[in-house]
Simulated assay, not measured.
Amino acid sequence: VSFDYNKSEEWYKGSLSFKRDGKPIPVTCVKVDGVDGIDAASRAELIFHRTCEVGADVVLRPHKDLFIKQKYFPKLPDHIEIRKGVSCVCYDRSEPLKDWANKVQSKEIVPYMMISLNYLSGLLMTVFKTFGAHPLGNLDLIRGVRSIQAKGFFHGGLHKQSSFVFFHDKLKVINVEGSLADLSLSEQDEKKKKDLMQLRMMLDVVFKKILGSKYSWKECSSFLKFFDNAECLDYPEFVEKLISHPLLLSSEERMGMFARYHRKWEIVGKHKAVEKALRSSDFDHFKSWNRTPVLSNMNKFMKGVYYHNSGNYSGEVTELLRYLRNLYNHYYQLKALTVNIVDVDSGVQRLFPGFLELLYTHLEKL
């Protein structure tokens, strides 16, 4: 193993060769400390084997656990730990999430997500749903955590930015450590749920860091709040509701929800309950939704569907639901315009941010 000059005491960049004349592999070696009576070397070995066993797409497989000691940096202070020797787990060369967030915060880099947040508000949902590629794939992360648990493990440190790295522009989990094997079923569910709640904490911290503590992103805030509200549920129901949240669905699935909720409104036994929910103060922002400034900001395909019905919509929230149902059902009939479902979803989120999330909160349980 050889190392680049690096004063970080959390990770070290270097090269790893398995043969004396073998081709060096660029690596990032993540330092492991001893904890709870387990020495650092034993813990590094445990993390290496358990992380290898998971094999999930969202988990970055390590190459080796090592004890490393560097003597060849004459300018390196004597107290730097790598002179004394540290235990670590070596992964393919990657960038720690914490470093990436610091670069974004200092404007050293402006990732695709930030450009969208600042200038293309209608694409927020598209960006967040591709969070694996640009750059934080939320649903991929949740599925990845579940795949870790399906192998009989839990992570236990997903609230820490040090548990995540960027590898080929995708966010990956590292350092899987906990085992579910010797726990009761209730204890297993508790550990599993805690993993997901810790993931929620990490997301909130990262967004506050790169967007500011008072960032305004209604869809994301609704999703994080949903985490908190669903925490009281049993683990299977908690996960089911979490992965079906609108923020994590495709554009086709999201727009289809408007049609589904409108059908629910049409059911005789549920009609009054739906209307009562839509009259609640939570929907005040969407009352008088079709005032002139909103209509003037509609895309052509949205106006085409709106005026196809001679603009015969009142300002009631139920009418907004009907309009969005019609938009989903008929946008493709506007043959003069080249538009796809992602354009439709982005247009709806631009004009009516947070509406679908409110519908989900109030109507999904009816």
Rank of each mutant, 00 (worst) to 15 (best):
E231T: 10
C232P: 00
C232M: 06
L233G: 05
L233Y: 14
L233T: 06
L233W: 12
D234Y: 07
D234N: 11
D234C: 08
D234I: 11
Y235A: 10
Y235P: 12
Y235S: 10
Y235V: 09
P236D: 09
P236R: 01
P236M: 05
P236A: 04
E237Y: 07
E237C: 14
E237T: 14
F238N: 02
F238H: 04
F238A: 04
F238K: 10
F238V: 05
V239M: 10
V239E: 12
V239P: 00
E240L: 13
E240R: 15
E240D: 15
E240H: 15
E240W: 11
K241R: 15
K241P: 03
K241L: 09
K241C: 09
K241M: 09
L242V: 05
L242M: 12
L242H: 12
L242R: 06
I243Y: 00
I243N: 06
I243W: 00
I243K: 05
I243A: 02
I243T: 08
I243V: 13
I243M: 07
I243G: 03
I243D: 05
S244D: 15
S244Y: 00
S244M: 04
S244G: 04
S244E: 13
S244N: 12
H245V: 05
H245E: 04
H245N: 15
H245L: 10
H245C: 10
H245Y: 14
P246H: 06
P246Q: 08
P246A: 09
L247P: 09
L247Y: 09
L247T: 14
L247M: 11
L247D: 06
L247W: 02
L247Q: 09
L247G: 08
L248M: 12
L248N: 06
L248Y: 12
L248F: 11
L249H: 03
S250G: 11
S250M: 04
S250N: 05
S251N: 01
S251G: 05
S251D: 06
S251C: 01
S251K: 01
E252G: 04
E252R: 12
E252D: 11
E252L: 09
E252A: 10
E252F: 13
E252K: 13
E253T: 13
E253G: 08
E253W: 00
E253F: 01
E253S: 15
E253L: 12
E253R: 11
R254I: 04
R254W: 01
R254H: 00
R254S: 06
M255G: 04
M255T: 10
G256R: 07
G256M: 08
G256K: 08
G256Y: 08
M257H: 06
M257G: 01
M257C: 01
M257N: 03
F258I: 03
F258K: 01
F258L: 02
F258T: 08
F258H: 05
A259I: 00
A259V: 06
A259Q: 01
A259L: 06
R260S: 13
R260E: 11
R260I: 08
Y261P: 02
Y261Q: 00
Y261D: 00
Y261T: 01
H262F: 14
H262K: 10
H262Q: 12
H262N: 07
H262C: 04
H262M: 11
